[in-house]
Nucleic acid binder design. Structure first.
Lengths: 329, 329
DNA sequence: CCTACTTATGTAACCGGTTACACATAAAAT
DNA sequence: ATTTTATGTGTAACCGGTTACATAAGTAGG
């Protein structure tokens, strides 16, 4: 692998000149520049980022910390982040925390050791000491923090929308699935839905769950119909749980949406492919990722004041697990 | 951020000694070691990976190149890779290529510039010049290459299994969906299924597709039933397409699996949550990721000769889009 | 004609680790 | 008692970029 010194020698100039050509700063004569560029080409030279990072004390890497890329919601976030940071010349160091504090800490350390210029984290416990003595730009994604800028969807409003949707469409015995207690956005949705249900003239019950994993979603679906067989409307904590419930309901021979309405949360790509297709509250995951990345990049470039909180709107995606409602009611 | 020199000064030793303590090599007195460790603790020192990488000419990073993390098959691969490399102390630099040669090349360059110690790529065009002048260990995942070790599932056998399954369960007018021509494993499956169908006493037709994206899957599902309304068995190119077809079939009022059997490929997590749940050919994605990582790590450590090709078995996952068959036929 | 500024280029220090080599002492071998 | 060998520690070069500073020539202004 050729170094800048090789190029310098070959082109008959000093390393400083090569560096100037490379970074397009300082004065370089037209002829010299041409010669250097030609030599770079010829030697197939590409600068060593590591050496550069060492001197500059910063790399062109950004750390992205997710709970679990295997959960279909996160790849979309990740893709949004990636597309945006790439455009600005950055690359991603990726980590899955599995919501474990140790793994999280390990990754944060890796990020620092590798001189990342910023971190985007979609992790719980946002205010844990983990993030307190970091002097890097940090943006929380799909989470909120008092101490760091955050990008998230309006979960409360989402919960309200979901509840309103079922109520408006005639469900009267609603079951509200409460997602894991430690997952912030799950609780926001829950609170929003709870508030709306409380205001309305419907019966409802709450079913607590502890994770989002596929396997367990099936268990909860079964539990739901054992505990609340008479329910005629379910607000799921996310689309995976929603689809699991749909599956179980069909297995039990329930007619959807006539006997039972179901509404999910997230709008993961596969939701539109369930049958009946799942009505859901959409979070603009890809856009959220992009916004977080944009925000982080602004922080990295120290552009003016940055918005501390970016809340993106959620929307009701009406598909076929909820009944149609007359527009003019 | 404290440096090794700060630690050395504080502990009253030389940087060499601190380095020896850090890396646990060379001779260090018991007392000295204790003092150094205590100082490291007190200063909250953690070594700068970038400086280390520069001297060693290798980092602790591994490059992972995927077509698109948004496709539900790949997060599983990625997770397998991550879990395995983490255990060996490596971290991941992630890139999505979107199957575009330019992006791919850009990422490979990033990987090299950042001194990654190895690359795992799940990219087509494995034998493109891209990978020819790399003097790093490269493992192809879910793809094969003549020049580099590869980890992949037995796609041909998968195709045969899928075809056999439908034939054995009584489909006689089968439609075989041919995945994108440039995606190697899709073609393997296709060839396998084709071979099996050709041998059997069934009618069949082939429908070509050009991508795996969600949106387009719906289009092909519609196209399928327009062109071949009488089909009673579909071999989908992957689970997403399979689920899209299932969705469309149900929308058209077809009874599954009585009127129409469907078999997918991959066994993505959501396949078991479709209704009826999707029968499919399972690829052990997580394990494939792990195997690829293990292989790469062995190459990095230059342990003995390495297996050039690791083929993992596929298996038929019989769920409810195929009919039950008597065991003793 | 002299000063001041612009343009062009080179030298060497620096970033923060790692390690070859030198040196010193103590213990073991001859 | 002398030579080896094992143990413990320090000095400085090195990895490959970037950049502060020095030097020099050309040219614009007074």
């Amino acid at each position: 692998m050729a170094t800048i010194r090789d190029v310098a020698k070959e082109a008959g100039v000093s390393v400083a000149t090569v560096s100037r050509v490379l970074n397009d700063n300082g004065y370089v004569g037209v002829e010299t520049r041409k010669r250097v560029l030609e030599t770079i080409e010829r030697l197939n030279y590409s600068p060593n980022e590591v050496a550069r990072s060492l001197y500059k004390r910063k790399s062109r890497l950004i750390g992205l910390l997710l709970p679990d890329i295997t959960n279909p919601f996160f790849p979309q976030l990740a893709r949004g982040v990636e597309d945006e940071v790439n455009q600005a010349g950055f690359r991603l160091l990726l980590g899955n925390s599995d919501e474990e504090a140790t793994k999280e800490l390990d990754y944060i350390q890796t990020f620092e050791q590798n001189h990342v210029v910023g971190i985007i984290s979609a992790t719980n416990n946002t205010d844990r000491e983990n993030y307190e003595n970091i002097d890097l730009p940090v943006v929380f994604l799909d989470r909120t923090s008092k101490h760091h800028p955050s990008v998230f969807a309006d979960g409360r409003e989402g919960g309200r929308l979901a509840a309103r949707a079922l109520i408006d469409r005639g469900s009267t015995k609603i079951t509200l699935i409460k997602g894991p207690a430690h997952v912030q956005p799950a609780q926001d949705r829950f609170q929003g839905a709870l508030a709306e249900l409380s205001k309305a003239a419907v019966d409802f019950s709450v079913l607590g769950t502890t994770s989002y994993a596929f396997e367990e979603a099936k268990t909860w679906a079964e539990e739901l119909f054992t505990k609340h067989p008479e329910t005629d409307g379910v607000i799921a904590s996310n689309d995976i749980v929603g689809i699991a419930i749909l599956h179980e309901a069909l297995r039990l021979g329930k007619s959807i949406p006539d006997e039972l309405q179901i509404i999910g949360f997230d709008d993961i790509p596969l939701s539109s492919l369930s049958y009946p297709s799942l009505s859901t509250i959409r979070q603009p995951a890809y856009e959220m990722g992009k916004e977080a990345a944009k925000l982080l990049i602004r922080m990295i470039k120290k552009e003016q004041e940055i918005d501390q909180m970016i809340q993106l709107p959620v929307s009701l995606i009406e598909r076929n697990t909820t009944r149609k409602v007359d527009k003019d009611e």
